[in-house]
Design a protein around this nucleic acid. Structure first.
Length: 807
RNA sequence: GCUGGAGUGGCGAAAUGGCAGACGCGACAGACUCAAAAUCUGUUUUCCGCAAGGGAGUGUGGGUUCAAGUCCCAUCUCCAGCACCA
């Protein structure tokens, strides 16, 4: 009687063996393959089955690459700065560093249950001063290059987290972290000039092997638009107002102008009659939160009493204020062409402003216009010298024409804003800047980094816009590194994204205290070949990382300017009915018991089997029985085969090559769920074949199967590999190859259709000619044809279709 | 509103334009068992039929094709992202 499959014993044994003798070794001759997981935040909640998915996917891919002969770089680390640890500190009075270390210990233990082949020698932790020394160093470099600057302006403020937020962290007007409505607060902020890289961040997307969805999201986020800035003189005054438009072709149709209430000239445009209303509107707008502003879809506005002059035709148009115009995009002022813009149309209708059509749709003006005609397609009308031109052509040419005549200039705009980089919280990297009354902002000298985070009495955010660090006088008060006079330290800290924007560079040289990463190692091991993680970082982490990488490339630290060559976003594992797993919903499924009951190998395979890796999947414990039974059946087949050692039949050889082909193809196309079903299918076939050979198949077939299975179920694979008589790890063999000639069937099944409906399936020789196939097909359905065959189709080895016409 | 993605058995799902439902879960029947679990064998889209066989069928309506889940046009529903960016 064969040894039964005992996952507990096998998994424990191999865990120990691998620890004693690591499998992934760099012998200096193999090419590298860098497969990276998005590093986790070490939360106190621990891992659930959803977290496993991404890690299993990346581990399977990593082990596959290893079997293909690569030296694998597959590290793991901790993105450990951030609010949860700090909030926990406030509640429990424990230093965030203490709770963080505790969480890291626990999560590391849980991650080890996955049996992923991480190289823990490369581990990094963003809160380690030896790490954040370089986070600060990058900031200093950016400061010196003019990319980090201070600015006071109304930023997004989360009243609950009591900190400023970047645009990317505001989702539908609420805080990404806690869901509180975001308000505006005037604060002095550190900013990073990411906009300087807008064009490169946009155009370099073309080079990346990333999901189109993510590229599209980044493209939209950067939001490049082409247009013109045009000056409109204020009637009766010397000054003019500059507007930005992407539709200069419609200039003759401008019947009014709107300024954002925050526009610098807004108040000055009021007349004696309108002053009260204008000032009230400006005040009300300043009190509105983002959420209110988003929810009030109904347009509001106030007429200033002043008029602007259309530079093309001298028409006087009223100037209004409205909060549908954004102060910080373009020039904060727009010309309004209600006939050809939805928002202007709505506003004009509401306030009875004339509508002039300047593009003839289908050759004529639209009668009784009910909505704006927004396409740049049609002939120009009511447009003076532009009459008769094609709108789409004029749209492209007008900016240059306007510039030539001195009416304005051709220009490009981006939705992307500079990155608000300071946070008024404790648990982050201190911004290494000293404010000197004489020298201004002076960076902490590089040889004095890291600037470590001091101990504080209270982690409580102050809410005044000052970080808790501001209360520590002996830390705040320092001397200027330039002139030695008394000076004050910057007390804001960096956002959580700071460390995660470059951590992937550090893994390969994590103990280097001279350099962020040595150029040699960077050239040898970077960039990341495959990056695996959730799609939630499409415009945050993934955009910031690209920016950092480009900057570090520009200053010569590294020699590549895109960090992640290939990106894969795994779908989320949800609870029943697609509800996100969360503690508060009580639908969290822990992997711990599943590992105990079924084993790591079974859970790994089930994580893949639940559905296509890129789609969300609802978790259902019951399905794991399927993969568990498969592993048991394969174990029994393998053990019996080892015992009996039967010779290979022709059929076994064929199935072996087909299996290798099937698994390799599906793995290459990243169809991991069907790889698992492929294993099951071929296991069933082999078990069926073995019925006539004493329950066994030949050992070469078992070896092949074991090797193919190894990335998925490494423990059982190693155990069987050993039982097959090998004394080295299965991961040191190479990925099996298949011979297309060996895979071929002698006899093939071909359905025979009459008018597209299958009537019978015949078995013919794989070598059969078209004539022979059709002959056999016709013979098989002879009795079913009532009429004349008018067309005969034979798709080789696929199908026969006879088109029959009734008499 | 815009941009993606998805709609296929009781359920998770599979299908380079070529037998729709592979693989698995669940269910049902049988074998083994005193019994149960485990395991093994079989059935399992649906309708008509004792059967042989036949009809229908991939959200809905059209189209292209010898052949459509797959391609084209229109339309509905659900999920996600963005959201007054001129």
């Amino acid at each position: 009687m064969a040894v039964p499959y005992n996952h507990r014993a096998i998994e424990a044994k191999w865990r120990t063996n691998w620890e004693k003798k690591p499998v992934n070794v760099n012998d200096g001759t193999k090419p590298k393959y860098y497969c990276l997981d998005m590093f986790p935040y070490p939360s106190g909640n621990g891992l659930h089955v959803g977290h496993w998915r991404g890690y299993v996917i990346s581990d399977v891919w990593s082990r596959y690459k290893m079997l293909q002969g690569y030296y694998l770089i597959h590290p793991m680390g901790w993105d450990a700065f951030g609010l949860p640890a700090e909030n926990y500190a406030i509640k429990m009075g424990v230093h965030p560093a203490v709770s963080t270390a505790e969480n890291v210990r626990n999560i590391k233990k849980q991650i080890n249950d996955i049996a992923a082949i991480y190289d823990w020698d490369m581990e990094v932790n963003t809160t380690d001063p030896a790490f954040y020394k370089w986070t600060q160093w990058i900031f200093v470099k950016m400061f010196k290059e003019g990319l980090a600057y201070e600015k006071e302006f109304p930023i997004n403020w989360c009243p609950s987290c009591k900190t400023g937020l970047a645009n990317e962290e505001v989702v539908n007007g609420v805080c990404e972290r806690c869901g509180s409505p975001v308000t505006k607060k005037n604060l002095r902020q550190w900013m990073l000039r990411i906009t300087k890289y807008a064009d490169r961040l946009l155009s370099d997307l073309d080079r990346l092997d990333w999901p189109e969805k993510v590229k599209k999201m980044q493209t939209d986020w950067i939001g490049k638009s082409y247009g013109a800035e045009v000056d409109f003189k204020v009637d009766g005054r010397e000054d003019s107002i500059r507007v930005y438009t992407t539709r200069p072709d419609t200039l003759f149709g401008a019947t009014f102008m709107v300024l954002a209430p925050e526009h610098a000239m807004a108040a000055s445009l009021a007349t004696d009659e309108t002053r009260g209303a204008v000032e009230k509107y400006i005040y009300d707008a300043s009190m509105k939160s983002n959420v209110d502003r988003l929810q009030d879809k109904e347009k509001t506005g106030v007429f200033t009493g002043s008029y602007a002059v259309n530079p093309m035709n001298g028409a006087k148009i009223p100037i209004w204020l409205s909060d549908y115009v954004l102060a910080d995009y373009g020039t904060g002022a727009i010309m309004c062409v209600p006939a050809h813009d939805d928002r202007d149309f709505e506003f004009a209708k509401k306030f009875n402003i004339p509508i002039i059509q300047v593009i003839a749709k289908d050759g004529k003006e639209i009668e009784d216009m009910q909505e704006a005609y927004t396409e740049a397609s049609g002939t120009m009308i009511n447009s003076g010298e532009w009459n008769g031109m094609e709108s789409s052509v004029l749209k492209k040419e007008a900016p240059a024409m306007i510039e030539e005549r001195g009416l304005g200039k051709k220009t490009v705009n981006y939705k992307l804003r500079d990155w608000v980089f300071s946070r008024q919280r404790y648990w982050g990297e201190p911004i290494p800047i000293i404010h000197c009354p004489k020298c201004g902002n002076v960076p902490v000298p590089e040889d004095q980094l890291p600037l470590t985070l001091p101990e504080v009495e209270s982690y409580q955010p102050t809410g005044t816009g000052e970080s808790p660090l501001a209360a520590i006088e002996e830390w705040v008060n320092t001397t200027c590194p330039c002139c030695g006079s008394p000076a004050k330290r910057e007390t804001n800290t960096m956002p959580q994204w700071a460390g995660s924007s470059w951590y992937f560079l550090r893994y390969v040289d994590n103990k280097n205290d001279e350099k962020l990463v040595s150029r040699e190692k960077a050239d040898k091991y970077l960039p990341v070949d495959m990056y695996i993680g959730g799609v939630e970082h499409a415009v945050l982490h993934l955009l910031y990382s690209r920016f950092y990488t480009k900057f570090l490339c520009d200053i010569g630290v590294i020699d590549f300017d895109e960090p992640f060559t290939k990106l894969f976003n795994q779908g989320m594992i949800t609870g029943k009915n697609g509800i996100k797993m969360s503690k508060s919903k009580g639908n969290v499924v822990s992997p711990d018991e599943l590992v105990e009951d079924y084993g790591c190998d079974s859970l790994r395979m089930y994580e893949l089997f639940v559905g296509p890796p890129e789609l969300d999947a609802e978790w259902d414990d019951r399905g794991i029985d399927g993969v568990s039974r498969f592993l048991k059946r394969f174990w029994n087949l393998a053990v019996t085969s080892i015992e009996k050692n039967v010779p290979a039949t022709k059929e076994m050889v064929k199935v072996r090559h087909q299996l290798t082909h099937c698994i390799t193809e599906r793995l290459n196309s990243f169809s991991l769920n069907t790889v698992v079903s492929g294993f099951m299918e071929y296991n069933n076939r082999l078990i069926d074949l073995a019925k006539s050979t004493d329950g066994a198949v030949d050992l070469e077939t078992i070896e092949t199967f074991v090797t193919l299975l190894a990335p998925f179920a490494p423990h059982i694979a190693e155990e069987l590999w050993e039982m097959l008589g090998h004394d080295d790890s299965v991961f040191h063999t190479s990925w099996p190859e298949y011979d297309p000639d060996e895979m071929k069937d002698d006899e093939i099944q071909v359905p025979v259709q009459i008018n597209g409906k299958t009537r019978v399936v015949i078995s013919i020789s794989a070598e059969a000619s078209k004539e022979e196939a059709l002959e056999a097909g016709k013979a098989a359905v002879a009795g079913k044809i009532s009429g004349t065959i008018i067309k005969e189709i034979y798709v080789p080895k696929k199908i026969i279709n006879l088109v029959v016409k009734n008499k």
